[in-house]
Design a protein around this nucleic acid. Structure first.
Length: 222
DNA sequence: GACCAGGCACATC
DNA sequence: GATGTGCATGGT
């Protein structure tokens, strides 16, 4: 396969190599992290997950039993701790009630059906659902985040007004549905985004620099 | 002290 | 349907 997105991937991979995502020890830890990282620095999420680990709570049925105020305190470093505690509880309710706390059972369902079910949980939007499906469940579904949007829009490859599904389809229609490729691609986009494509872009030294449109990155910002 | 970070839901027009 | 706002901690 060739084409723009394959070249982008090749450049990113050549520059940065494998990113070893998702940074977690178990699928359940991926799920918890996916909720906690919403609009939040990963460093803060690590502290919160560390608290849960020390308390021996990185297991669905045990975490589901933790009283809400206690859960809030444990995840406090991740920010938005009250709403995130409720979101975790919402998701745990599905996992425990419907699948007996067994992730293997949940992930044995078809991708589309499970994706819809996750989106039905209050607090689980498209990015969180896709992160869980790809990085915890091993499903070939592409994850889109703010960096993905920025990198593509700044290069003029999509419009600044492109929505989640337009961007997701942009990738999925041009790439083979390959879990390892989707895993690495998203992680590489986050990496290049953090280094070069923040709100104030530092395009110098970016592996995609030569691919910029004439006159530098396009401007309108989110 | 301002600005930012791997979103999402909800209010209002 | 589009746009605006609340949610919160910790690092630069």
């Amino acid at each position: 396969m060739s084409g723009l997105l394959q070249e982008v991937y090749d450049r990113l991979y050549a520059a940065y190599g494998p990113q070893h995502w998702w940074p977690a020890q178990t699928p359940f830890e991926v799920i918890v992290g996916a909720v906690l990282v919403q609009n939040t620095n990963w460093k803060n999420v690590e502290r919160a997950i560390g608290n849960l680990r020390e308390a021996g709570l990185l297991e669905p049925r045990r975490l589901a039993k933790v009283p809400l105020p206690e859960l809030e305190e444990l995840i406090r470093p991740a920010g938005y701790y009250r709403i995130k505690a409720r979101r975790l509880r919402n998701l745990l309710e599905l996992i425990v009630r419907r699948y007996g706390g067994l992730l293997e059972r949940m992930f044995s369902r078809p991708l589309d059906a499970l994706r819809e079910e996750l989106l039905g949980v209050p607090g689980i939007g498209p990015e969180t659902a896709d992160s869980i499906l790809l990085y915890a469940g091993g499903f070939p579904t592409f994850v889109v985040d703010t960096y993905t949007h920025r990198v593509l829009a700044r290069h003029g490859w999509i419009g600044f007004d492109a929505d989640y599904y337009q961007i997701k389809d942009f990738f999925e229609s041009q790439l083979e549905a390959n879990v390892q490729l989707f895993n690495e691609y998203h992680a590489l986009l986050v990496r290049v985004g953090k280094l070069h494509c923040r709100r104030q872009p530092k395009c110098s030294g970016c592996p995609l620099e030569q691919m910029l449109p004439e006159g530098g990155p396009l401007e309108p910002e989110e």
